[in-house]
Design a protein around this nucleic acid. Structure first.
Lengths: 210, 210
DNA sequence: AACACTATGTAACCTATGTTACTGTAGGCT
DNA sequence: AGCCTACAGTAACATAGGTTACATAGTGTT
């Protein structure tokens, strides 16, 4: 595990902290689609992402869902920290978007390191900041963009996360993540195809014009 | 200033930290409507709210605005911290909602205290957490609620902030904060009045049924 | 009073999006 | 082949919300 750590977090943390993480953390490997966190669950450890990506979703009381953002390699979900400290329940759902490898760090250690390592402190603060910026972007997207623009952005974001312009996704999945209906998605996708921005296929979509 | 501090933050911070804040912070008093922070500005100090409330707004590239949340007494805007560390520009606009008194703390001190005082560290983490929860609530509101529900929620939130069910606001202002048009607001307000939930008057609205 | 200015009410219309319903088609399975 | 199921295309319609235009009513000023 120590090589994984050095490779992905070595530029952030000093050797001693890497050793601490190595001895306290638990390595975990999950397949795409694996649910890492459910709304209402209590949280007891924080994930450090070694490879892959996690998609963070919000759900309302009717069960309607909405994609908020992705967490990628070298990052973490700092919200876990404050949830742990405040004994709060998770407010979001986390699902592996691709096959993902991560290191789970127990909450007492996280708190301990906050006092012990300046670099860890910065990491946590930076992580909060990134999450906040991503939430702001999510707000922008739903508040200021039209559905066709949102779909295009969704495809572009997804292409970046999976590192491929051929995106394996069904219209139904898009509708689910964007909190709209399949028919609307199909309609607008067809329009985007006619504009030459994408190519539609069964079970996948190709981005033509980025 | 020290009494203000003891009164509003005494339960959070030890005496020594209160003294530190007292000697480094600058007391500031601003009237309702005063713009405390503009999008794109660099940030050099963090506000501790002694009394009053601040409204946080997001703006898109076309100048369209959207109310995100309020910051109230005893709280702070922790985002400032990570903005300062990362030398980032503000992503939001902050306007005093009521007459407001605050203490501005310079950024170097904030960082120093993160290492020195456990209570300050917790305060910052808790603040990030609160902001995050409020942003999530904002997402819920725009993603899952209809405009009439959003207007009602807007009025209720505002009533709580100003501590009064008689809300001094024009239809135009509501339209602005919710990123819609005045005509739509007037239409839906009238509907809410017919449902017996509010009373409309020139320049103010009374909440009847909470 | 006469005027100007702002806030509000409302009608008529337009567009984006959501809904229902039906069709066709690709791929897997027996 | 025949069957089943998930996916995609599309028409027809319903509704929320945005737009334009105009009328009316307070409020303050001269």
């Amino acid at each position: 595990m120590i090589e994984e750590l050095q490779q992905n977090f070595g530029y952030l943390f000093e050797e001693e902290l890497l050793q601490d993480i190595n001895s306290s953390g638990v390595f975990k490997e999950v397949p795409a689609g694996f649910k890492l966190m459910e709304i209402g669950e209590y949280i007891k450890s924080m994930p450090l992402l070694v490879s892959g990506s996690i998609k963070i979703l919000r759900e309302d009381t009717n069960g309607d869902e909405l994609l908020l953002y992705y967490i990628e390699r070298g990052d973490t979900c700092a919200m876990t920290l404050s949830c742990c400290i405040g004994q709060a329940k998770s407010q979001i759902r986390a699902v592996a978007e691709t096959d993902t490898r991560l290191i789970m760090v127990p909450v007492q250690k996280m708190e301990e390191w906050m006092g012990k390592y300046k670099s860890w402190q910065n990491f946590i603060i930076q992580s909060y900041h990134s999450r906040m910026m991503e939430l702001l972007e999510a707000v922008d997207t739903i508040a200021f963009l039209k559905m066709d623009e949102r779909i295009l952005k969704y495809l572009q974001d997804k292409a970046k996360v999976i590192g491929n312009d051929e995106i394996p996704v069904t219209h139904q999945e898009i509708a689910h993540d964007l909190h709209t209906s399949r028919v609307v998605v199909s309609r607008l996708l067809k329009k985007l195809e006619n504009l030459g921005k994408i190519h539609l296929h069964r079970n996948h979509i190709t981005i033509v014009d980025l």
